[in-house]
Design a protein around this nucleic acid. Structure first.
Length: 272
DNA sequence: ACCCAGGGTAACT
DNA sequence: AGTTACCATGGG
């Protein structure tokens, strides 16, 4: 297949910030400003330019990656709106994070693994999941399909060292594989209905379900309430996020998450 | 040794 | 309906 380079002009996309802010777990830095990774079985190499990025991928996948980075959404306008709130304005300063449009099953499994866990170890478990059960390609291992994981035992997943999450991974794979959980159907539901439909999976509660809604089903209105966002909310937004987030509360949340986990952890949220 | 990590479940009030 | 111990693993 023909591998192509594709330059995309974009003034709101910092690859390092976007790929390593805890929304996705399958990318690595090759050298300063150069990255590679997978979504499902699709491989891509990326390069940071001052005014955009260069996508290197099979020619037929370029459109997939443009969509993955949600390049048609106008972040200039969005961040201008966010700037109407002082806390959000501070959170957006120096950040060029885009919320990615990831694959639903991969997002589901990834955030099941994320529970009561840290980003470094989440990445390690997902690496081992792919190496053990993903299809091997010329570039590396694809993310396993639901079919590849369905029917496995907890013992089969022992090499992942996922702890108590193993049984949750299997239940999710079984229910997606059987069609009991059907992303195409869930896409048609309201946020509340979709969240409940995902929560039939063992180990999926409100937070993991909202991560799937936001990162895997493109619901920018979904706000996953992790420990950091709970801290932000109780300190800055006891009445909820400001009006200026509009239909994009989930994107605002990602900026607040990174802000809290970064700058605020040693100041506002410093532990005594 | 203790605490925490992009939480959820089950068993309690 | 709202709390709380417990769940595996690894890093600080």
């Amino acid at each position: 297949m023909k591998i192509s380079d594709f330059f995309v002009k974009c003034n709101c996309l910092d690859l390092k910030q976007t790929l390593f802010c805890g929304q996705c777990f399958r990318f690595r830095e090759l050298s300063e400003g150069e990255y590679e990774g997978f979504a499902g079985d699709k491989y891509v190499k990326l390069k940071q330019n001052p005014d955009g990025i260069t996508i290197t991928a099979p020619e037929g996948d370029i459109e997939f990656w443009r969509e993955y980075f949600d390049l048609s959404l106008d972040y200039d306008f969005l961040l201008e709106q966010f700037g109407r709130d002082e806390t959000l304005k501070a959170a957006c300063r120096g950040r060029k994070i885009r919320v990615l449009k990831q694959l639903p099953f991969e997002t589901l499994i990834s955030f099941i693994i994320s529970q009561n866990n840290n980003i470094k170890r989440i990445t390690g478990i997902i690496d081992r999941l792919c190496e053990n059960f993903g299809e091997k390609t010329e570039f590396g291992y694809a993310f396993p399909t639901a079919g590849a994981l369905a029917g496995l035992s907890e013992e089969n997943l022992a090499p992942l060292r996922a702890g108590f999450r193993g049984k949750y991974i299997i239940d999710a794979a079984d229910k997606v594989n059987s069609g009991e959980v059907d992303f195409e159907r869930i896409k048609l539901l309201s946020d509340d209905e979709a969240r409940e439909a995902l929560k039939v999976i063992k180990g999926v509660g409100d937070k993991v379900a909202d991560c799937v809604l936001l990162f895997g089903l493109y619901r920018t209105s979904a706000v996953p309430k992790d420990v950091w966002i709970k801290r932000v909310n109780s300190y800055y937004y006891p009445e909820g996020l400001p009006e200026c987030v509009g239909e994009y509360a989930g994107i605002a949340q990602q900026y607040l998450f990174d802000y809290a986990r970064g700058e605020l952890k040693d100041t506002v949220f410093k532990k005594k």
